[in-house]
Design a protein around this nucleic acid. Sequence first.
RNA 1: GGCCCCAUGGUCAAGCGGUCAAGACAUCGCCCUUUCACGGCGGUAACGGGAGUUCGAUUCUCCCUGGGGUCACCA
Length: 482
Amino acid sequence: MKVRTRFAPSPTGFMHIGNLRTALYAYLYAKHYDGDFILRIEDTDTARFVEGAVELIYSTLQKSGIVHDEGPDKDGGYGPYVQSERKDIYRKYAELLVERGGAYYCFCTPERLETLKDENGVTRYDKHCLSLSKEEVARRIEAGESYVIRQNIPTEGVSEYEDMVFGKISVPNSDMEDGILLKSDGMPTYNFANVVDDHLMEISHVIRGTEYLSSTPKYNLMYDAFGWKRPEYIHLPPIMKDAHRKLSKRYGDANFEDFYEKGYLPEAIVNYIALLGWSPKDNEEKMTLARLIELFDVDNVSKSGSIFDETKMRWLNGLYLKEKTDEEFTALARPFYDKSAISGKYDYDKFSALLKTRVEILSEVIDAVAFIGEFGEYDLALYQHKKMKTDEKTGLIAVKAAIDALEKVDSFTSENIHEALIACGENCGLKKGQILFSVRLALTGKASTPGGATEMADILGKDESLRRLRFSESLLEKFLAE
RNA sequence: GGCCCCAUGGUCAAGCGGUCAAGACAUCGCCCUUUCACGGCGGUAACGGGAGUUCGAUUCUCCCUGGGGUCACCA
């Protein structure tokens, strides 16, 4: 049997990391077994529909490299792939289910339902309308009464199924309610649309979050009542924001788009979330999508939830960044460079070469490069470096020597700068590290910079370098005079 | 509250009766070094508790505790 999995999001907002992971696993599973991955839009809740949400689903999947074989935009013969366009289908099957005894019409008003509440405020339908005769049902529908179709669940016995990650799940039938399958507006609920669509679309493996773990027996009861074959189930543990809270839409940073805009590479995001709830046998960590497809299997999907750790995703992102060429890095970082202090003024590639190993997410280039723009008073204590054996005094010596040396450099290339600096250091009795460390500081006023003294001077150019050195010289002189 | 599920370091996680309980991130230290990084080496750090089963439990069973999910005309 061909493996067919689906990702069935509802367009109610952005795609958060948990949703994406579900899509990813469904995709990986299908592709691992050379099957098909289907995209289905579950928009039966007209009230919660959010404008633009469908587009976001497409763009996120596309950026992530998760491509569907069938979907609203790619007909595979099982369409339509948008639930709101399948209304007639659901009605037909709901009626069929009623005929087969798996469901029944219900005319109960919200007011009557209200009276069914127990002390916990939980309403539990009492099968009141199950006893209605066929004739009465027909008469009341004819009369225009509002109605829903409810699932008819046995009051006794236990329903069981085997989940591929959680194993055997069993739920007493008496704990399940006769849920609504077809709403009074004619739209199906998730519970029903899902079963009908998964069957009609020949989904072999249903992959979704654990929130459906205990309601799955209800769906199985429907498959049974229809006389359909039940699919295999793969329920996925939740991704948590912290020990207590699930990742939610309220946790703003948890959605793909935000990470993308912060300068995370889609391949790094995908790689990281693949590892949240699953791990390959040999513990590989940095994996391409192709590699993930090759290695993915249900055996190593974990049962317990995992906390989303942005720090580790940053590390992974840094790994991907490091292997980019300078040009590739520049292309990716351009939007951030354009917003930074070097915008339009400097050769981005030059910075990329230095920043590649110093930055974990692209947006960090803005801060890393800020010293170019802002230069003023800074903490002179920075000149004190224990290991280097430098302080404000040696700093001043170094700065003075550097000014003299650099003034004489006509062709301001990095080789010449370096040579001049080393030479002047020797002349005034400073070691290589001491002179370079001090000069770098005098040029930038920052504890850490994208490169050493030579690179900084080269990037700043002769005039600006000398201007900054003289400024630092005066700062140091003033300090030492006190 | 009922029902379902889960439980290894701070985090992600190997483990599937016998291990000095992997690895990664983070953290700390050292080395390298033209700062900061990168890289290399090393350290700290875990089986929630209690009963069983067994020659032997992190691993199997039960209870407790803790946590999550679910009880909508939402998905």
